[in-house]
Amino acid sequence: MNFIYKTVFLLLLVTSGVSAVAEPSPNLGNTPMESDEVFKDFGGKPGLVAIMDDFMVNLVADPRTKPYFDNEKQTYIKAMLVEQMCELMNGGCTYPGRDMKSSHTGLKINRAAFNALVEDFQLAMDKHDVPFRSQNKLLAKLAPMYRMIEEK
């Protein structure tokens, strides 16, 4: 009996330990940050939404990225980006979208387009006064996704 109680107790401990650290969304593309410090520098969810609005404006204005984003999917992509960035920055969101590989296959994205998008994102973050160090902390989460997004 004693043994069973002990086992149940231990199991409870283990599972509660696991559920305290929520599993990241399977399609997130990278592991989330350990704290929400960077998320705060982005102005939380409202700040992030405002940055993504400007980001999309930049993407459509940039001839290198316009062909990809100048269409009716804008609103959906923006909403997905907000959830993805929010979860990556440990902002308490759950990214519900597709994985990075399947959502970008067939788009023929090369390094020039990838870097162009990063630049347009930097401009949007600059505009909202996100500290450069925090920008780079998020970019460090996004940059490795080139392996899933680029097609050569």
């Binding site: 990278n30 970019l139 460090a140 989460k141 940059a143 490795p144 080139y146």
Partner: peptide, 9 residues
């Protein structure tokens, strides 16, 4: 290697 983009290794 990718000096800039391979930020996770």
């Amino acid at each position: 290697g990718e000096a800039v983009l391979d930020a996770d290794t």
